[in-house]
Structure formats: structure tokens, C-alpha cells
Nucleic acid binder design. Structure first.
Length: 499
RNA sequence: GGGGUUGUAGGGUAGCUUGGUCUAUCCUUCGGCGUUCGGGACGCCGAGACCUGAGUUCAAAUCUCAGCAACCCCA
């Protein structure tokens, strides 16, 4: 028996995150990676339920001020090519449809890598007057990018299956910038509900969205010490409006270009939930996005003193609890399967169910049941008549607790330095030290705006520049200093190894 | 972008060098029956695969070429 337990593989998240990640996707039934096309994967029912709960949160946030639409997947070549900067950023990764049946198409059709060039020609038609503004729409669709680097489920895909893109148009730059702030607030709320910690930065000039005035990004830290971009927000200004000739008639009768923004989130947000909260036993889902929030495991044939009808009373108690939870709007599941209890525990732990309730003969004697939280090993006894209340309370506690833990983990890996290391005496040693820090997480340091300095630093440390911190500089921290490379005046930036 | 390795049941392997009685094996794979059931049960019976296509050949899992896919290394 002892040996059996030892041979059961427990996944080591810390040691080999990459292996852990693909193992979890399979065992928790999130994605089937066996589809025979590179970079595209199949959502299992369970994974898709998580996806839908996650995107449900996003939808409810967006629906306040945005309207959902759906634009075509095809973008004609001439439209896609209109915006010079924009296409430069994407042309190497566009999939093309060049044939209909055996007939060569007059104009090749691109599969959208993103939808600016599909949507903005229609904006031109939709927008006539200042009364049409602001215009705020979004869609959740698939998008295609011919990724040449190694693809990774949910993270680097040739088919992004769940691309949420919002596009807005406004009368002025000030209104557009206001929208950027709103989008940042919206994304904060979204990731907070997923219990995902983040840093928000303005991407450096050389790394902004092609065609944007500037780009703001949300990055989170993955368990292997690299950051992953999980959301972006772009101020487009008038550049697309000029290209696609999107004008409105102002109050005074003059024609003006609109000011635009766009912002996107992909299924990377699901990847971050899996990667950040999961542990050696599998997923740990925040209750808000758990397809099953509570699993009830009946312990039926336990003690010998229980006669045949003892089993029946356990079943009755389980069904009663299940019904009550359902009525209270909690996503509960009663695991009546033939497996032994232990096998059920492992299965539902793998699937990340936040709370397990065990009910057996022993519990019934005291009219109670046992609660087992997924996020910590504590067990507790709860009287049967208080189950619904306690479940609600516990789920809320779990939601908060895993969020706090994740935020703490992120904070702990951010390394701050004010020093101009390149100019320092023992700069070689210090650089090596920084490189070690970069293995584990994010570094906050001073760097000027020039691309040359940025790239030199990127090479020296083996990192990417995430950008200047926006909106939330920490208290008591110097926000200005000397650029680590050229010693000119510089702002604080985050750098890290990235996905 | 360049180079290398690999592709056998749901998963993991062996077989390939030297073509033929090549199918086989293991598992937290699947199904049936029975005994079990408070942390991954056990027994018996059964099921399931040679990546795709072309070529060589009397004969291909095995050799050749192409495609598709995966992994690794270098840029």
C-alpha cells in the first residue's frame, strides 16, 4: 500500500513548470493538444466552462459601456495593407486565403490577426456626426497568427480562440485618453476577479502596438520567473482615422477625424489562472471561475455498524445538501460515481474545485459534514443546517486568500534597484547579480527612453523592457534617477524575461 | 532562419541496423463481472496501435522520398 502511494506521480510545479503546465492541461481536461495542426488545440468541455466563466466576467464588465458585435474573419488584402505601420508589425504572421475551390481569388483574404482593418472601414460608414460618438464596441472571436517561434497551448497560438478586442472612437484626444484610463480600470477589475496579480506599464516606443500612439500593458509573473503579457490597451490617436478616413461632423459643422483606442485580452488570461494558482496536486480555481465550486463526496459504505439503510441516509443527506446549494445559486456537483472516495478527492483536486464537502455515517451522527478547502489543508466540521451560509462564506474567503497569496508572490519577486550599475566600480559583478535576479522575476530600475539603451540593457541582462510603470508608483520610491546605460536622466522601468 | 532527433493502442515502451511465424509489453487507457469503499482498491475476462502519401519489393512498422506533427540545439 505504502509503495503504491509513492509511485503515484505528484506533479512538481516548482521544478519543471513547463512539464507541469502541459500535464495539467491534459489531466484537468482543459485542452486536448493532440490536434494535428501546429499551434491549434481543442478545448475540452471542462476547460471551455472555465473559459466561459472567465469571459462572462469580462463581458459583464464591458457591457456597461460597450456593445458586443461580430465582424468577419476575412479581411481583404487591400484593407489590411492600408495602414503602413500597422501592417509592418503583422505582415510576417498573416495567414492568407488565396483560393475559393480551385479558383484563384482576385483579392486574397487575410484571416484576421487582429481586427482594426476589418472594423475601421465600417466605422467610416457608421460614424457621421458627433452624436454617433463615443462609439464603443467589442467582440470575442478567434484570430490567426502564423507564429514561427514555439507555440504553446493558450499562450502562443496560431489560432487564438478567444480574442476579446474592444474598439472605441471619440471626438477628441482627451476623450480617447479618458477611455484608456477606463479600460485600465476595467482590466484591473477583471484580473482582480481572477485573483491574478499584475504590473501595468507603458511599453517603450520601440515595442508599442504597430500604429498606436502608445501602448499600455498588463503583465503577470509566471512560476518560471518570466512575465507574460495578459492585456494591452492602445491609444491610437488619429492615425487609423486618417488612414481609413473616419470623420465626424462636429457641432460647428466642421469635419474632424475621430480619436481612437483599442484594447485586447486573449485566452492567456486563462493560462495565467492555471499557472499562477495551480499547485502540485493540480488546478486551484478562484471560486468565481470554477465550473464546480463545491463537490459533494458521499462516504457510503464506511463502518460495519452501518446497515444497508445507513448508506441510504448518507445519500439522502448528500442530495439534500446538493439541492440546497443549487437553490442558493452555487455551482455544486454531487459525485455519485462508483470510485472510492480517495480517487474522487484526487480527481476534483486536479480539477481545482475550491471546496469539497464530505458526508459520511460518522458525520450524520452529529448532523454535520466536513469541509475541505482546496487552497489549504485545513478541514472543518459544519452543521448540516448551516451549510449554505458556510459555503458562501468559505468561497469568498478562498477567493480573497488565493488573490492575496498571488499578490504577495509577485511583490516578493520584484527586485528594486536605484543604482547606476554600469557606471559603478564592480559593475561586472553587479550585472551578474542582476542577471540572477532576472532569472526569478521582475527588476525595477532606471532606464532612459532611447531604444539603444533599452536594447543594450536587454542584451546585458537577457531581459525585455516591459516599460514605465503607470498609475501606481509605490510610496516612498524614487521615480527619477540615472539611466543604467548612459547615465542620463531616466524614469523607473520594469524589465524581465518574458514569454 | 539553420541543424539534429523522433513519430507504434488513451499514455509509456520494445521491435527497425540485417524487410518475411511481427507483433509484443507496461500503465493512474477503455469495457464487462465480482469482491471492495473516511485519501489514488483488487481479481478475472475482454478491447485497442505501426503518422499520411508515394516509391522500391514476391513481401514494408522496418528501406527511400515527400508531406504533416512533436522535441532538442544554434542564430
Amino acid at each position: 500500500m505504502q509503495q503504491k502511494t509513492e509511485t503515484k506521480m505528484v506533479l512538481q510545479k516548482e521544478d519543471n513548470f513547463s512539464e507541469w503546465y502541459s500535464e495539467i492541461l491534459k489531466r484537468a481536461e482543459i485542452l486536448d493538444i493532440r490536434y494535428p495542426v501546429k499551434g491549434v488545440y481543442v478545448w475540452y468541455p471542462y476547460g471551455y466552462k472555465i473559459r466561459n466563466l472567465v469571459y462572462g466576467i469580462l463581458r459583464s464588465l464591458l457591457d456597461n459601456e460597450h456593445e458586443e458585435v461580430q465582424f468577419p474573419l476575412f479581411i481583404p488584402k487591400d484593407e489590411l495593407m492600408k495602414e503602413k505601420e500597422h501592417i509592418k508589425g503583422f505582415e510576417d504572421e498573416v495567414f492568407w486565403v488565396t483560393k475559393g475551390g480551385s479558383t484563384e481569388l482576385d483579392i486574397p483574404l487575410a484571416l484576421r490577426p487582429t481586427s482594426e482593418t476589418a472594423i475601421y472601414p465600417v466605422f467610416k460608414v457608421w460614424i457621421r456626426s458627433h452624436r454617433d460618438l463615443p462609439l464603443r464596441i467589442y467582440q470575442i472571436v478567434n484570430a490567426f497568427r502564423y507564429e514561427t517561434k514555439h507555440t504553446r497551448p493558450l499562450i502562443r497560438l496560431r489560432e487564438i480562440t478567444s480574442f476579446k478586442e474592444a474598439h472605441t472612437a471619440h471626438v477628441s484626444r482627451a476623450d480617447a485618453e479618458e477611455q484608456v484610463k477606463k479600460a485600465v480600470a476595467l482590466y484591473k477589475s477583471f484580473f482582480d476577479q481572477l485573483a491574478i496579480p499584475y504590473v501595468i506599464t507603458q511599453r517603450p516606443e520601440w515595442d508599442k502596438f504597430p500604429g498606436a500612439v502608445y501602448s499600455i500593458a498588463f503583465d503577470t509573473l509566471m512560476p518560471d520567473g518570466r512575465t507574460m503579457q495578459i492585456g494591452t490597451i492602445h491609444l491610437l490617436g488619429e492615425s487609423f482615422a486618417r488612414t481609413f478616413d473616419i470623420k465626424y461632423e462636429d457641432k460647428d459643422g466642421s469635419l474632424k477625424f475621430v480619436n481612437q483606442t483599442c484594447y485586447g485580452i486573449s485566452e492567456r488570461c486563462v493560462a495565467s489562472v492555471i499557472a499562477i494558482h495551480g499547485d502540485d496536486h493540480g488546478l486551484v480555481l478562484p471560486p468565481k471561475v470554477a465550473p464546480v465550486q463545491v463537490v459533494i463526496v458521499p462516504i457510503v459504505f464506511s463502518s460495519k455498524e452501518e446497515s444497508n439503510n445507513g448508506g441510504t441516509s448518507v445519500e439522502k443527506a448528500c442530495v439534500a445538501v446538493y439541492d440546497e446549494l443549487k437553490r442558493a445559486g452555487i455551482r455544486a456537483f454531487l459525485d455519485n460515481s462508483e470510485d472510492r472516495p480517495g480517487a474522487k478527492y484526487y480527481r476534483w483536486e486536479m480539477k481545482g474545485v475550491p471546496l469539497r464537502i464530505e458526508i459520511g455515517p460518522r458525520d450524520l451522527k452529529t448532523n454535520s459534514c466536513e469541509f475541505v478547502r482546496r487552497d489549504n489543508p485545513k478541514k472543518m466540521h459544519v452543521p448540516l443546517n448551516e451549510v449554505v451560509l458556510e459555503v458562501k462564506r468559505t468561497l469568498e474567503e478562498i477567493q480573497v486568500s488565493i488573490h492575496e497569496e498571488a499578490k504577495e508572490a509577485l511583490r516578493n519577486t520584484i527586485y528594486h534597484t536605484d543604482e547606476n550599475i554600469k557606471g559603478a566600480e564592480n559593475s561586472e559583478e553587479k550585472m551578474a547579480e542582476l542577471r540572477r535576479k532576472a532569472e526569478r522575476g521582475i527588476i525595477s530600475l532606471f532606464l532612459c527612453d532611447s531604444e539603444r539603451c533599452g536594447q543594450e540593457l536587454e542584451e546585458l541582462l537577457g531581459v525585455s523592457v516591459l516599460g514605465k510603470e503607470v498609475y501606481e508608483t509605490e510610496e516612498g520610491e524614487r521615480s527619477e534617477g540615472e539611466c543604467m546605460i548612459c547615465s542620463r536622466k531616466a524614469k523607473r522601468v520594469y524589465v524581465a524575461r518574458t514569454y
